[in-house]
Nucleic acid binder design. Sequence first.
DNA 1: AATGAATGAGACTTCATTCAT
DNA 2: TATGAATGAAGTCTCATTCAT
Lengths: 198, 198, 198, 198
Amino acid sequence: MPKVSEEHRMARRAQIVAAARTCVAEQGFHKTTMADVIAASDLSAGAVYGYFKSKEDIVAAIAEEALSSVDELFGSVLLTGEPVSPLLVLERILKHIVSMAERPDGDITKIALQAWAESLRNPAVKAIAEDKYRMLRGRFTEVARRAQADGTIPADADPEQVAQVLFGFIPGFILQRLLIGDVTPQSYTAGLRAILRD
Amino acid sequence: MPKVSEEHRMARRAQIVAAARTCVAEQGFHKTTMADVIAASDLSAGAVYGYFKSKEDIVAAIAEEALSSVDELFGSVLLTGEPVSPLLVLERILKHIVSMAERPDGDITKIALQAWAESLRNPAVKAIAEDKYRMLRGRFTEVARRAQADGTIPADADPEQVAQVLFGFIPGFILQRLLIGDVTPQSYTAGLRAILRD
Amino acid sequence: MPKVSEEHRMARRAQIVAAARTCVAEQGFHKTTMADVIAASDLSAGAVYGYFKSKEDIVAAIAEEALSSVDELFGSVLLTGEPVSPLLVLERILKHIVSMAERPDGDITKIALQAWAESLRNPAVKAIAEDKYRMLRGRFTEVARRAQADGTIPADADPEQVAQVLFGFIPGFILQRLLIGDVTPQSYTAGLRAILRD
Amino acid sequence: MPKVSEEHRMARRAQIVAAARTCVAEQGFHKTTMADVIAASDLSAGAVYGYFKSKEDIVAAIAEEALSSVDELFGSVLLTGEPVSPLLVLERILKHIVSMAERPDGDITKIALQAWAESLRNPAVKAIAEDKYRMLRGRFTEVARRAQADGTIPADADPEQVAQVLFGFIPGFILQRLLIGDVTPQSYTAGLRAILRD
DNA sequence: AATGAATGAGACTTCATTCAT
DNA sequence: TATGAATGAAGTCTCATTCAT
């Protein structure tokens, strides 16, 4: 097979990442073997290694994908410069997270949990996680500022510190959903409504 | 073959768990080898296998220890039946978490992250995590009820749902502390103060 | 499909052998991969396999080239039928060897070492080595005969046996030059002068 | 199996080296697989890796053994301080080499050839080879000095240079014996007698 | 004729666990 | 009881070669 198009290469790469994502969501990074990924991707060992030079690289690619995905949450939420209620932002995000988690090709929140653990000993994953989460938290800083503009949040609060807390709701939700299993965007939003200023 | 005392057995067991905890905090469950644990515990392979029948069992023991440890957080907080401010409870807990994380023999919050990931594919760890976290969240239900008693939280709120959110702050804090590294009990408490009803 | 000229084919073949020679001089036969050769030859995998049916064949071609090259040493030495001093022959040969070894496209003495080792388990290379070295040693038989003619060497000696020894100086020189690194044609010739009859 | 004696460990190690030597003499360093060595040593993979941390290490051990073995040649030759004839020394050495080569557990001269080639790209083997051969050549320097003492060799010759040449006979002999196959200590000694001063 | 992506057997190595002493 | 050498299945990755385009 002579030179293939760049799209072809991208498609193959995506095929491998998708296969790996499914495996990792089921078995975790470490119990997922390259043989699993190779079988799931319908490629040969050599082909897979033509796209990723090591398992480590595939892990990093999946982690990046999973950690980045949360960013798409904000796609439409912050478009205009108008004030947005933190409560509303969180509600939308939690719903989006659940819809992503229920996609058929691997629960992305499970991948995120794996990535958190992996980042403790894998500098590449750590760098990705830190980077992505700083960005994401930056969005919440913006939310905090707008909430201060309309008086929902006291004007003298530090928006960075507020963002820490707002951002912190997300792992709290994801974790309980996976480990305990009884939280829903509805229940969580109701709880939030009860404790947050409005 | 002199039968050793029960205390002796317990001490040996603790020695193994401590050794394993240190290893796991540094390298994660999967990169920690039995050889690592054996070396760190100053015992022989045979001896370690006399106390735990498999690596899986050691993992479960460490996970149990780490996930339980959060419970000691509440030690003195809920002793009396008086109302307690959620804000105050959280502040004390965050401080306690940091002090636990800084103990010399392995950051217990890192173990917790490992345990979260592990619980996705290890039913034993999953059962421990679910159990411990349900219990812990139960404490927050109590906090919610007392906060309703003194009017901090609306009387018509579901204390279970409020507990979900209050409990959810903890993983949010732990995760940011490990991945981004800039949150402190002080900054988080300040953020909380800005958004929570008081 | 325009048939390419024979010269074109020969040029391509030479290009491949040259690329492979460079690789092999640096990394040895076994650490040199086909990918290395393909990259160094600026051809495609398919093209290379159009000229050589296997790596084994390329190895044989390089070995042949390297083992034959010593023969050019004698180019001018034995032209006339006159007596030649063994000492002088050896001196010229050693100088020639060094000049070949210092050519930019791969030290041919390193290839020779590789070929010696390879011939122990590769019958094709063995056949080449045996053949070439028998021929080369034949030249020394002629040298021995002429040295007998002028009395440098006793008349009753067996010129074949003398040739064994004369020929044997060459690997001794090459090996010390590569492994120890302190022999030169000058030092070696001086040593020879001290021990050989004259 | 609890702690074993040091002799036991040495014996196991020797068992592995012997197995590897046999394999390498037959197939060369690179075609010899760890599976071959493991099978030939009658141990398990894990056991072999308990004694050598990599194939590279086994290669180095075999190379060291083979390159050192030549040193035993000199065992009795230089005991007294008396003059010794270079011719006689060489004759004894060649005989010894042949007897070593004919030992049943792997022709050590074949290993030496492998080691020569390997030393070109393996710094560990290179270091061993250089070291051993410098030492060995040092013995020939001593031979040269004694030969000068009794007048066999001109007094004004540099014994180091003479040693280069004397030492150089050995690879010449080994190589012809393996590649061409018709040299014997007798034939070589006869050739030497014809060309060396006496 | 030329390309180079794909193949897949097989290489090296690790490591949880056992069991003879 | 305790030891730690030994086991061997299983993991990651390489690379000579092919063949659809």
